[in-house]
Design a binder for these strands. Structure first.
Lengths: 340, 340
DNA sequence: ATCAATTTTGGTAGCGCTGCCAAAATTTTC
DNA sequence: GAAAATTTTGGCAGCGCTACCAAAATTGAT
C-alpha cells in the first residue's frame, strides 16, 4: 500500500458519474433524469424505466452539492452542541437523526466544549453549508452568534431550555422549574439541611439555572442551602463521588444533597455505598436527567426525567415541516425513586 | 408569531451576501476576495484589509456549497454509525470532531440502528455529499455498501475493529483478542464455572466476535462456558441486571460472569448489590469498554479499556492528512479492577 | 533609465445540478 | 379528422464559487 489514496480494483474512475452521463446512457435529456430521480414533475413510465436502468447500471450517486447550489435548501441540519460526553446531547441527536433521515435530511454537527467563542466560530462554519436549520443548546450565546443567526435566513432552534428569549424556535423544558420543583420535593419530604454537588456552572448554564432556582426555593422556604461543592470540569460519576465526599467532610450534618445531574448523583450514590451511608435515612440524594442507569440501581434514583430524545424529535419535525416560530415546553417528570 | 419563518428586525435579506457583492464593496476582483478568504495564492496587504473590512461590514459568510462544487473536496466527513445510545459511538465522534474542526472539516452523521440495509441507504445518502471520507463501524457491510464505497473514490475508514479485510483504512482494536484475553484473565484468577450475559449479538457483530473468541478460549482451556443469557435489544444497565438475574436463577453455581460490555456489567453489579451477592468472592464480574463509571463504583469494575476517543482522533487525522490505506491496531488495556 | 523577474490582480470558464420555458408528443373534445 | 387541451420532453441559463490564465503593477538588476 502506498500513498495513492485509491486504486479500487474493478471500478476506477477519478470523477464520479454525472447526471449528464446518465442522460446520455439512458437516451433521454438531463431534465428528464433530474425529474425522475427527484420524482417531481411529469415523465412517462418508459422514461422512468430507462433512467432507472442507467442509474443502476452506472452506479450513479446524485451530487447533492450541485443539486443544492442549483435549487434551494441544502437538506442539511446543523447541530452546534457543547459536548458529546454528557449523554444529553447524544440523546438529542438520536431523537433528531431518526426524523431527519426519514425526511431525507442529514445532520451535521460540531462540538463547542461549552465555549461561546468556539460556538460562534462553529456557527459560522455551519452557516457556510447553508443548512435548513441550526440547532443550538440553550439561549446563552455571544451577541455575534445571535446576529449571524438572525442574518442567516436559516431556521434557528434553541433546545433543552425554555427560560429565555429565542431567536426563532425553542424546544425543551424549564430548567428553572426543575430546580424549583426539586427543592419543593425535598422540602416536602422533610429534608431541611440540604447541600449541593455540582460541576462547572459557568459553562453549563442550564445546570446553573437549576442551581439558582433550587437555592432560591430553599431560601424562600426558610431553609437555605447549607453547603455546596462545585467541582471544576465536566460532570461525571467520579466527580460526583469525590464531590459528595468533600461536601460531607465539611458539612457532616446534611440530610439531603441535590446534584447537578444524574451522573454526579450516581457518583454520590456510590460514595454512600462505599462508606456505608444508608440512603435515604442518613442522606437523601436527588439528581437530574432521569438516566436509565438510575432506574437499575438497587434503589431507584430520585430525579427529574427530561424528554431529551423527544426534544430532538420535535425539533427535527418542526424544522422539516417549516413550522412557525414558537416555544415548545415539553415539560419533565419528577421521579420519586427511593433515594430521597 | 405566525407562519412566516423569518422577519429578522434589522437585517432582512432573502438571499445571503455573495462573494461578488463583497468584491464590489471592497473594490477588488472576485478572485482577490476568494484568495484572501482562503489565504491562498498571493495578494497585497492593502487588498487583504479592504476585503476583510467589506466581509466584516456586510456579514459575509462564504458558501461552501458553491466552493465545494467549484473546487474539489467537500471538507465533510461522513459517519455512518449503528447507534448513539451505546457510548462507544459518541466517544468516537468526540475524538474525531475535535480533529476535524481543527482542520476546517465538518462531521455529518447518520444512525443505522445496526441495520445493514439502512446502512446501505445511508451510505448512499452520505456519498451524495461527496465527503472527504466515510467512516463506518466494523467490517460487516452489505456487498452493495462495499461496492458503492469502492466506486465512490472516497476514503473509507472502518473503525472499532481490526479483525477483517478493510476497504481502505481500518482503525481500532481486536475484539477477538479482547474476548480471548478476558477468558485468559478469568481462568488465571481461578474461575472455572463461567457464564455470559449479553445483548443482541446478531446486530452488534463486534460483541459477537468477543463472545465467540471468549468461548473458544474457555473451551480450549477445558472449562467451557457453563451458561449464557442473551437478551434481545440493545445493551443497557437494566438489561444486564435482569440478564444476570435470569442466568443465576438457571445456573446458581457460576463463579464468574463475562458481560458483553460495561453497561451490562454494571447492571450485573447492581443485581449483586441488591441481592447481597458478594463480589468477587461469590461471583466475579468482567465487562468490556472501560467506561468511567466502572472506576467510580465502590469496587472498580474489572474490564478491558478500549481507546474509543483515540480511535476517532486517529481516524480523523489519517483522513485529513490523506494517509495511505492501512490497518491501525490501537490495542486495549485490561483493567484488573476488583470485581474479578 | 531599461529590461527582466516577480508579485499582484481581474476576467472568465466551468463544477453538476435544477428551474424555466418552449417545443414535441400524446390525448381529448367536438 | 382537425383543433384544443394536456402531458412529456430537452435545451440552456445560472446557482456562487474556484482554477486557470493573461494582464497589470511592482520590484530588482544592470
Amino acid at each position: 500500500m502506498d500513498s495513492e489514496p485509491k486504486e479500487g480494483g474493478d471500478i476506477k474512475r477519478l470523477a464520479p458519474i454525472t447526471l449528464a452521463e446518465v442522460a446520455e446512457a439512458a437516451g433521454v435529456g438531463e431534465s428528464t433524469v433530474s425529474r425522475v430521480l427527484r420524482n417531481e414533475g411529469s415523465f412517462s413510465r418508459k422514461a422512468r424505466d430507462r433512467v432507472m436502468e442507467a442509474v443502476e447500471r452506472l452506479g450513479y450517486v446524485p451530487n447533492r452539492i450541485a443539486g443544492t447550489l442549483a435549487s434551494t435548501g441544502s437538506r442539511l441540519v446543523a447541530f452546534v452542541i457543547p459536548s458529546l460526553s454528557n449523554i444529553v446531547f447524544p440523546d438529542l441527536l438520536r431523537g433528531a437523526s431518526g426524523v431527519l433521515e426519514a425526511n431525507q435530511h442529514q445532520a451535521v454537527f460540531a462540538v463547542t466544549d461549552y465555549d461561546p467563542g468556539r460556538e460562534e466560530a462553529l456557527v459560522a462554519a455551519m452557516l457556510a453549508w447553508r443548512p435548513t436549520a441550526v440547532m443550538l443548546a440553550g439561549f446563552e450565546h455571544n451577541e455575534g452568534t445571535r446576529k449571524m443567526l438572525r442574518a442567516s435566513g436559516r431556521r434557528v432552534v434553541e433546545v433543552l431550555d425554555v427560560d429565555g428569549e429565542p431567536v426563532d424556535i425553542a424546544i425543551g423544558f424549564s430548567n428553572r422549574a426543575a430546580g424549583q420543583e426539586s427543592a419543593a420535593f425535598l422540602l416536602k419530604r422533610g429534608y431541611r439541611r440540604i447541600g449541593y454537588v455540582g460541576h462547572d456552572l459557568e459553562r453549563d448554564t442550564r445546570a446553573g439555572k437549576r442551581y439558582e432556582s433550587f437555592c432560591a426555593a430553599l431560601h424562600t422556604a426558610g431553609f437555605p442551602l447549607v453547603d455546596r461543592q462545585i467541582n471544576a470540569g465536566a460532570s461525571s460519576v467520579e466527580s460526583g463521588r469525590q464531590g459528595l465526599g468533600q461536601l460531607l467532610a465539611r458539612s457532616p450534618g446534611l440530610d439531603a444533597v441535590y446534584f447537578s445531574n444524574d451522573d454526579m448523583a450516581i457518583g454520590g450514590y456510590f460514595h454512600c455505598l462505599a462508606r456505608g451511608i444508608s440512603i435515604p435515612s442518613q442522606l437523601a440524594i436527588f439528581g437530574y436527567n432521569g438516566l436509565d442507569i438510575g432506574r437499575a440501581t438497587p434503589q431507584p434514583l430520585s430525579t427529574i426525567r427530561t424528554p431529551r430524545v423527544m426534544t430532538g424529535q420535535v425539533a427535527a419535525e418542526l424544522v422539516v415541516s417549516n413550522a412557525p416560530s414558537q416555544v415548545v415546553d415539553l415539560g419533565f417528570e419528577l421521579i420519586e425513586g427511593a433515594t430521597a
